[in-house]
């Protein structure tokens, strides 16, 4: 469904991604592991067209997308749960949600999806009129996920859903991800530092180091891999 072929990017003179090859098949959950500065967020921005690759090709549903502007790429059915503050703090929770359905023309579909989302996040309906900026960190993350679901995407990108959250909240977030996987026919590309959690929900994984893919394979195999064990599963991460 999504395919990156030899994608390289740079900010000015500094190379960020080097010849990255990644494939995501329909219905799959794929995680990309990497430390700070490995180029994880840049990778997602490159897929969305916010950073233009200097070399390589990106295909979505067999269509080449790497030269399109972000809004055209997103309109094809990709949504992202951004890292940290991806919300509009002064808009209400409701308006934040509705921004997720930016490309849906049919109000009936939006209502149906809203109902679905309210079911998944029962606390949401009571908070609709509240400004998004007043939510707690965990709630914001959930709202970010809910907003992305409102787009009813074919491919859901998630940028470090565990970042900056308390352990209990991280568990909650990953429970939500598991539920989404179970209930919806959705493809997920998950970018994480928290390898233990990510490898539990994902079927396959890639390890990104200094802008290059150094390892790839099924999640179970990665869990047993020495490099992954040493760098990402060592004591201290949970």
């Amino acid at each position: 469904m999504l395919e990156l072929k030899n994608v390289s990017t740079r900010y000015g003179q500094i190379p960020i991604l080097m010849q990255v090859n990644i494939q995501v098949a329909r219905g799959e959950t794929v995680c990309i592991l990497g430390a700070n500065g490995a180029g994880k967020t840049t990778l997602l921005k490159t897929i969305l067209g916010m950073v233009k690759p200097t070399a390589g090709e990106i295909y979505f549903n067999k269509q080449r997308i790497d030269s399109l502007p972000p809004h055209n790429i997103i309109a094809q059915g990709i949504a992202i749960v951004p890292e940290r503050e991806g919300l509009f703090p002064k808009l209400t929770v409701e308006n934040n949600l509705l921004m997720g359905g930016y490309y849906e023309q049919d109000p009936g579909n939006i209502l149906a999806r809203l109902a679905e989302v309210y079911q998944a996040f029962p606390w949401l309906p009571q908070r609709l009129k509240q400004k998004a900026g007043t939510l707690s960190g965990g709630e914001r993350k959930m709202l970010g996920i809910a907003r992305a679901l409102l787009a009813n995407p074919q491919l859901l990108l998630m940028d470090e859903p565990s970042l900056g959250l308390a352990p209990a909240t991280i568990n909650e977030v990953f429970n939500v991800i598991t539920r989404i996987k179970r209930d919806k026919e959705i493809t997920i590309l998950l970018v994480e530092q928290n390898a233990r959690k990510a490898l539990l929900v994902a079927e396959r994984g890639y390890v990104l180091q200094k802008g290059a893919v150094i390892l790839e394979g099924p999640a179970a195999a990665l869990q047993e891999n020495e490099i992954v064990k040493k760098s990402y599963l060592a004591a201290g991460s949970f």
């Binding site: 992202i80 503050e85 991806g86």
Partner: peptide, 9 residues
């Protein structure tokens, strides 16, 4: 939030 605005399309 300009970046998030671009990210929702």
């Amino acid at each position: 939030n300009k970046e998030a605005a671009i990210m929702v399309g």
